[in-house]
């Protein structure tokens, strides 16, 4: 009994180590791959130079591309992947719906309305950035959903309210785009909404890192409570869980994570839906293992998707949301196919 538990912990630790290693390799690869080919050793030297471990002489331009452009981009991808997968896992458990994902609360639809309002309608007269507009829109949609779904039997009603909010805000976005005179701008907004890591720099890394790290800590703190939701809200309540408080805290945390991510890199789909299922398949339904697993696998997946998006039609960049869906859907089909036998 104890031995098998130690064995499981060892296996788990080894798994975490392997995924972390893979993540590190993927980030280095993400930094090395691009229009300007930079050797791996230059990549590593550039980073260790900056951190003060080494002082290798490198071409200034390569060092700048690595540090200011590619590394920040890969790190943002990693944190966004982690945050989206984590939010998806939380919502699937909390709403007891395996189709729930980060955008089920209407957040991506709200963000798009916010973004087009700023860009096409000129809200804020240039003082508000696209990201700030998207963030505000996301939060407005979230508040709308929470207000619609408060009261009893909340899980299903939250999802229905999310559907209503998504439809409403998507319609508003389409209305604004189709009545807008500027077709070029409309196109660039739609492109941004499909997900784009272009233009992210160190400030975005700091923001994504802090929001997702705090989110991860809060979620892991509630791992036991989430387990107690296995048989529904009344069952959780009778196990001593403060159902309402847990739900409010976790919905708020996932909404903040998702809104931050969407306002930074657009509505990248499928990560939040597929990764939690994949992680569950590997580590089982217990949240104390599931949540860190989601964060790690989500990060790895997103970094790899970003690399793919840059090399498929180079020198052009495919929207990363297209890549995550193209990779995610077949992957999802495999999971569904295999789950057929389990259920």
């Amino acid at each position: 009994m104890t031995r098998s538990r130690i064995g499981r912990w060892a296996l788990g630790a080894a798994g975490v180590f392997l995924v972390l290693l893979a993540l590190l390799v993927a980030i280095v690869a993400g930094v090395a791959i691009g229009e300007m080919t930079i050797p791996m050793e230059t990549t590593i030297a550039a980073v260790t130079n900056r951190l003060g471990f080494t002082a290798v002489a490198l071409p200034r331009i390569q060092e700048a591309v690595i540090w200011d452009y590619r590394l920040s981009r890969s790190l943002v991808a990693a944190f966004c992947g982690a945050g989206l997968a984590l939010s998806g896992a939380i919502l699937q458990s909390l709403l007891r719906n395996s189709l729930a994902e980060p955008y089920v609360l209407g957040i991506s639809a709200g963000a798009s309305t916010g973004a087009v309002s700023v860009m096409l309608l000129g809200f804020g007269a240039g003082a508000i950035s696209l990201s700030a507009g998207a963030f505000a829109g996301a939060l407005i949609a979230f508040v709308f959903v929470v207000m619609l779904s408060s009261g009893r039997q909340t899980a299903d009603r939250t999802i229905l309210a999310g559907v209503a909010a998504s439809q409403l805000f998507n319609a508003l976005t389409s209305y604004i785009v189709s009545t807008s005179a500027n077709a070029e701008q409309a196109r660039s907004v739609m492109f941004w909404l499909l997900g784009s890591l272009a233009g992210v720099r160190w400030p975005e890394v700091t923001l994504a890192a802090s929001v997702v790290t705090i989110g991860l800590i809060v979620c892991i703190w509630h791992a036991r409570a989430l387990d107690a939701f296995t048989f529904g809200e009344d069952a959780a309540r009778s196990l001593g869980i403060a159902v309402r408080r847990v739900r409010v805290v976790l919905l708020l945390v996932t909404a903040l994570m998702t809104a931050t991510i969407v306002s930074m890199v657009g509505a990248i789909g499928f990560v939040g839906l597929v990764i939690p299922h994949a992680a569950r398949f590997i580590v089982g339904p217990g949240h104390i293992r599931l949540l860190p697993a989601c964060a790690l696998i989500g990060a790895l997946f997103m970094v790899l998707a970003d690399i793919v998006s840059r090399i498929v039609i180079a020198p052009q960049i495919l929207p990363i949301g297209v890549v995550t869906a193209l990779v995610g859907v077949p992957f999802f089909c495999v999971i569904l196919y295999r789950a057929r036998r389990v259920a």
Binding site: S93, S98, T230, G232, A235, L239
Partner: peptide, 23 residues
């Protein structure tokens, strides 16, 4: 009682210890 989670017998019975365990 119904769930979609792929839990085992022991997972469910262990939930009973929830009120005795902190985070």
């Amino acid at each position: 009682s119904a769930t979609e989670a792929n839990v085992t017998v022991i997972d469910v019975v262990r939930l009973g210890r929830t009120p005795y365990r902190s985070a």
